[in-house]
Amino acid sequence: MAKRVPPNEAQPVVQRLRCRYTKTGRMRFASHRDFQRSLERAIRRADVPIAYSGGFSPRPRISYANAAPTGAASHAEYIELGLRTAVDPQLLTEVVSRALPDGFDIVEAIPAGGGKLADQLHVSHWQLELFGSEPAELDSALAVLLAARPVVFTRITKSGRKDVDLSSAWVSHTVSSGSTAPGQTCAILRVVVQHQIPAVRPDDILSVLVERTDLDPPTTALITRLAQGPLRESSGFPGDPLARDKDVDEQAFGSAAADPPT
């Protein structure tokens, strides 16, 4: 019996595109794997020339970085696509967004300028809209919580229980009043946290707050990632993780579609 030779060879990648996508509306309830499934199907629907790996089970060349948890909306999720033919990045954002379910949108695509995408994602800026809570209560709750550092809580991970220090990840925060829901006002916490392992997730912040302070649990919490990227020391906020790619792109005078990298 002949040994089966894998029927497929890996397809060479001629263009890498780094994309920012958003996860809003009902799609905030999608898990990372749900997005992955939807994206792969959208790419097929839109006839994007994605490159496939070789072997018996070829996989599309898509890398995912630091996805927001199920239930959290996001304006700043990042992926990198490996294409077997160069395309116009702007066109790609349009056709793929159209092929994705409403709530998922590719909003920018930039030819990769080098380095690793994940290396540009150091901090996240989260917004927590706490419906049913007042800014004043939130303010004093935060003061209580952050007064006694470290703020250690326990996370159950695959490799067992791990103590996580919330304050070590905490960069800065603001409290305001308002909301994205029409006709409703509530306390809004915006917080910049550093990415670390294990991660401090926005829902951790909320549960620790409710557990350790007098803050009543909000009726609903709407969590949104506003941005993620390298920490800009000047502002204390995340910078654009695609900034370096954009610089390279500009230096190349125009789109990579016209001039695929060799």
Binding site: G25, R26, M27, F29, S31, D34, R41, A42
Partner: peptide
């Protein structure tokens, strides 16, 4: 996600 609809 199974309860929200909005599929393609």
């Amino acid at each position: 996600i199974q309860y929200v609809g909005g599929e393609v």
